[in-house]
Computed example of a mutant assay.
Amino acid sequence: MTPPQARTLVTAGSRVAVLPLLALGAVWAATRLGMLVLLVRDDIGFGGVSREVYLTYAHWYGELTRGTFPVDDPTWQYPPGAGALFLAPALVPALTYFQAFVALALLADAAVTVALARAGGIRGGGVWMWTGGLPLLLHIPFARYDVQVTALAVLALLSLHRRPWLGGVLAGLGATVKLWPALALLGTPRGHSTRAAWASAAGAVLALLAVLSLGLSHPLDFLRQQGGRGIQIESLGGTALALIRLSGGEEGVEFRYGAFEFTGPHVAAVACVSFLLTAAALVFLLLWRVRAKRWTTATPFDAALCAVLLLTVTSRVISPQYLIWLLGLAAACLTSPHTGQRPVALLLLPAAALSSLAYPLLYDDVITVTPLGCAVVLVRNALLLTAALLSARRLWTATT
């Protein structure tokens, strides 16, 4: 029989273990309820955050159910796997399309929370980074499909250590939806892990593309809509153009390709610089992969966050939902005690808050390029640029 004193210690230990779980559950439920309330009201700042779902996504859903990907639609810029996500609300026929979409986004959010808690512990920084960081974006996460994509990338990273093949499958599925989850495999250790992960990723990509191509026509039409993208007003290049406009330049703003973009005499030059910076980031990542010699359990997490940060800040587009990706990857980093990305993760929190300040709260100022709107985006982008450079330096010094 268990002595009374031992039973008391076991009971006390169980109570201590339950308290953080209850705290996590309470914070998650309260913050998600607040996000849902904002989504239902959808009347703060530049309204219409949710119309992306019940107008654009629902329209695409209608075309997909008729057996074709959107054709000649400049706003359709997503790989074929995105079609599966836009069709997913059909799995919940009792709800409207909008309700089912939000419910699935909430389910993906919960899955990431549980996975991070299991990987890094309930008291770990990873699960709290995600639980507390996502609400900084207000209701945007539940009105975009990036939470689902981020869930695939985070689950892929957390699976790589024990089951490289499973991590590869999840990363491959994510890549068919929005390309960037493929970067989750950048930091896999050389040898069997890399071969297993990359082979299973390739298999998953080919399998899903084959299924979608058999069921839907025009799966590659999205490629036609990529080349014409300009400089979005919230991107790093957009900040440079905003400063030129405030200094008396002739730059204008137009709604094209589903986003507000700059027009004017300096756009082509800024787009060229953006392309060159993206190329430089890819060269750096390739060089790092070749030169890296020391791997820890945190290296795949750190490399994925670094890669996505570098390609985000050099992109012609930085939409607020991109912060969902970065928060998820930073949370994965914080599940490991060996990560070198803790300062980077801390920089992403104010960047997320400023992103929701720029959109939707002050989006009128951002569109019209007022000093206030420009200042908010400038500070946000400065934080992202600092985070990207710091992430690259810490990844390089920790592994080469």
Rank of each mutant, 00 (worst) to 15 (best):
Q5H: 02
L9V: 14
T11Q: 13
A12Q: 00
V16F: 03
A17M: 05
A26S: 14
A26E: 03
W28C: 02
A30I: 04
R32D: 06
L33W: 07
L38M: 11
I44D: 08
F46W: 15
Y54E: 04
P79N: 13
A82D: 06
A82Y: 11
F86M: 10
P89W: 03
T96K: 03
L104P: 00
L106N: 01
L107V: 13
A110W: 12
A111Q: 06
G121S: 01
I122T: 15
R123P: 01
W130T: 12
W130F: 10
W130N: 08
G133N: 02
G133L: 01
L137E: 03
I140K: 03
I140E: 06
P141K: 05
R144K: 11
V149Q: 09
V149L: 15
T150L: 04
A151R: 12
L155W: 12
G174V: 14
A184V: 12
A184N: 07
A184Y: 06
G187K: 05
H192E: 15
S193G: 14
R195Q: 14
S200H: 13
A204T: 09
A204C: 10
V205D: 11
A207S: 09
A207N: 04
L208N: 07
V211E: 02
R229Q: 14
I231F: 00
E234P: 03
A242W: 01
L243D: 07
R245E: 14
G248T: 08
F260K: 00
P265L: 12
A269V: 12
A279W: 12
A279I: 13
L287D: 10
C306S: 09
R316Y: 02
V317C: 08
L323N: 04
W325A: 13
L326P: 07
G328F: 09
A331Y: 03
P337M: 08
Q341D: 06
Q341Y: 04
L346N: 04
A351V: 07
S356M: 08
I367E: 06
L372H: 06
G373Q: 08
V376A: 14
V376T: 14
V379T: 11
L384I: 03
L395C: 11
W396G: 04
T399G: 03
